[in-house]
């Protein structure tokens, strides 16, 4: 009688305080039936990775609007790898120029959701990976 639940960490790396999007996505994913952990503001890549590991999440969703994504997102992917946790899937959202997306993906960020993405797209993305994360 296994009862597997997908667990998702919504993290806010960097210094930007705009958490409207992060809070919305956290709540909407809860309403979609997932267990969502939210970190609050100003998280370092290390604390996001430690949290992801302790909470044994399947996904880490990163929200960033300040433009620091090119340095912080790949740093988090790298730290997950260093901690034997490269199976945790990383996705991101926020003010992220189209031009930056291919490079972020190349560095291991699985998907980027730009402003205006309907929540359904995020849920579809997560569901498409359900098997991969073993749930």
């Amino acid at each position: 009688m296994s009862d597997k639940k997908i667990r998702i960490l919504i993290g806010k790396p960097g210094l930007d305080g705009h958490d409207r999007g992060a809070k919305y996505i956290a709540r909407a994913l809860k309403d979609a039936g997932y267990e969502v952990i939210y970190t609050g503001l100003r998280q370092t890549p290390q604390s996001i990775v430690n949290t992801a590991i302790q909470e044994d999440v399947d996904f880490v969703g990163l929200s960033l609007l300040s433009g620091a994504h090119n340095s912080l997102f790949p740093k988090i992917v790298e730290l997950l790898k260093e901690n034997d946790a490269e199976d945790i899937i990383v996705f991101g959202g926020g003010v992220i120029p189209e031009d930056d997306i291919p490079n972020l993906k190349k560095q291991g960020v699985e998907e980027i959701f730009t402003p205006g993405t309907p929540i359904k797209d995020v849920v579809d993305f997560i569901e498409s990976k359900r098997e991969k994360v073993g749930k």
């Binding site: 809860k30 939210y38 949290t51």
Partner: peptide
Amino acid sequence: SSPFSGGALLGDRIRMQKHSGNPNIFIRS
């Protein structure tokens, strides 16, 4: 957990998050 969706929003650790870098602490929601 939400009785409707079965999902949950786990936010207690926000207030303890500054300890999450400490190897002597393990927090689980």
